Amino acid sequence: MEMNREDLTIRDKLIYHAMTGVCTPNFMKHLYLSWMRDPFYSIEEIVNSYVPMSNETKQQKLKLSLEIAYCKRPFAELKELYRVNNIQVLTILDNGYPEGWLNSYLPPVVLFYAGNIRLLEQPCLSIVGSRSPTAYGKAVMDEMIPPLVAEGVTLVSGLAKGIDQMVHSSTIGYGGATIGIIGSGLDVTYPRENASLQRQMMAEQLVISEYPLGSKPERFHFPMRNRLIANLSLATLVIEAAEKSGSLITANLALQENRDVYAVPGNITSRLSDGTNQLIKAGAACVLNATDVLEEMKTQWR
Rank of each mutant, 00 (worst) to 15 (best):
E2M: 12
E6S: 11
L14Q: 03
I15P: 00
Y16R: 15
P25N: 08
Y32H: 15
L33I: 12
W35T: 07
M36G: 11
R37P: 02
P39A: 12
P39R: 07
P39S: 13
Y41N: 13
E44L: 08
S49V: 15
Y50L: 07
Y50F: 06
V51L: 14
M53P: 12
N55C: 12
Q59M: 09
L66Q: 04
I68H: 13
Y70E: 04
K72G: 06
R73W: 06
R73Y: 12
F75W: 11
L78N: 11
L78I: 10
K79H: 06
E80T: 07
R83E: 05
V84P: 06
I87G: 03
Q88V: 12
V89P: 10
T91G: 06
L93V: 12
L106E: 08
L111N: 00
Y113N: 03
N116C: 13
L119Q: 02
Q122P: 07
P123V: 08
G129T: 09
S132V: 09
G137N: 01
K138E: 09
E143L: 14
M144E: 02
M144I: 10
L148W: 02
G152S: 03
L155P: 00
V156I: 08
V156L: 01
L159Y: 04
K161E: 10
V167C: 02
S169I: 07
A177S: 14
T178E: 01
P191D: 06
N194H: 11
A195D: 11
L197G: 01
R199W: 15
Q200R: 12
Q200P: 13
M201I: 02
M201G: 10
M202D: 01
M202F: 14
A203L: 05
E210I: 03
E210T: 07
P212L: 03
L213P: 13
G214A: 11
S215L: 05
K216V: 13
K216N: 14
F220A: 03
F220K: 13
N226G: 04
R227N: 10
L228N: 03
L232A: 07
S233W: 00
L237S: 00
S245V: 02
S245R: 03
G246C: 07
N252M: 04
N252P: 05
L253K: 04
A254L: 01
Q256C: 14
E257Q: 09
R259I: 00
D260F: 04
V261T: 00
V264H: 06
T269G: 09
S273C: 04
Q278K: 13
Q278H: 08
L279S: 00
L279Y: 02
K281Q: 09
A282R: 05
A282C: 12
G283D: 00
C286R: 06
C286S: 14
N289W: 04
M297Y: 12
M297A: 05
K298F: 15
K298T: 07
